[in-house]
Amino acid sequence: MTAALTVLTMVCLGYIALQDFKERKVYWWLFPLTMLLLGLIHFLNTVEPWVFLSYISLNASFVSLIICTLYIFTRTIAKKKFLDYSLGLGDILFFYAFALGFPTFTFVILFSNAILFALLVFLVFKKKLRLKTVPLAGLMGAFLILVFGYSLIFISPPLYGY
C-alpha cells in the first residue's frame, strides 16, 4: 500500500517539477494532492496519531518561521515585494506539503538538502534556462523523487524510522 502511494506521490511530484521547469506555473490542485499523499504516507508509517500530529506541527512551525524570516528580510532589507519576487505561492504551498511528509528529524535533513540541491542545480543550469528565476518547487520535487526512488530500491536508511 505504501509503495503504491509513494509511486503515486512521485508521479505528482514529477508533474510539479515539469510544470515548474517549463512555465514557473503549477496547477493549484497538485499541491493539495501532494499534501494529502505525503501526509497519508507519513501517517501510515507513524505508530501513534499524536506523534504524527506533533511532527507535522513542528514541521509547519519551522516552515512558517522560514517564510516569516524571508518576508521580513525581503520587505525591510531588500525593500522588494515578497510574493513572486523572493518566493512564489507554489513554493510556499510546496514547503507546507513537504512539512506533512516526514518526521521532524528527517524533514529538517531532507528540507535543507532539497534547498541545497535546488541551489546547486540552478547554478549549474542557469545559463541554459529560458526563464531566469529558480524553479524551487520543481527542483525540490525532483529531489524528493530521487529520495523516494532510492528508498523504494534500497530499504536502508528508513525515511520514517525517526
Rank of each mutant, 00 (worst) to 15 (best):
T2W: 12
A3D: 14
T6P: 09
T6W: 04
T9D: 03
C12T: 12
G14M: 04
G14T: 05
Y15M: 13
Y15T: 10
Y15G: 01
A17P: 00
D20V: 06
K22F: 00
E23P: 06
K25F: 07
V26Y: 06
W28C: 05
W29T: 15
W29N: 15
L33M: 12
T34W: 02
L38Q: 10
G39Q: 09
L40T: 15
I41M: 08
H42P: 08
F43Y: 13
F43V: 04
F43T: 01
L44D: 04
L44V: 01
N45A: 05
V47Q: 10
E48G: 00
P49D: 03
F52P: 07
L53M: 13
S57Q: 09
L58A: 08
S61N: 02
S61E: 08
F62P: 01
L65T: 10
I66N: 11
I66H: 07
Y71F: 14
I72P: 06
T74A: 10
K79W: 02
K79D: 07
K80R: 13
K80E: 12
K81F: 06
K81A: 13
F82T: 04
L83Y: 00
D84S: 13
Y85Q: 11
Y85C: 14
L87V: 15
G90K: 08
D91L: 08
D91Q: 03
L93S: 02
F98H: 06
F98N: 10
G101P: 12
F105V: 15
F105Q: 14
F107D: 02
F107R: 10
V108G: 09
I109P: 13
I109L: 15
I109V: 15
F111V: 01
S112M: 12
S112Q: 12
A114F: 02
I115D: 02
L119K: 13
L119H: 06
L120Q: 08
F122V: 08
L123Q: 14
V124Q: 00
V124K: 00
F125H: 03
K126Q: 15
K126L: 08
R130Q: 12
R130I: 12
L131D: 11
L131N: 05
L131K: 08
K132A: 07
T133W: 04
T133P: 04
T133Y: 09
V134P: 11
P135R: 12
P135M: 11
L136W: 09
A137E: 06
G138K: 05
G138Q: 06
G138S: 03
A142H: 02
L144M: 15
I145G: 01
I145W: 07
V147E: 05
G149C: 06
Y150W: 06
S151Y: 03
I153L: 12
F154A: 01
S156E: 09
P158K: 14
Y160C: 05
Y162R: 09
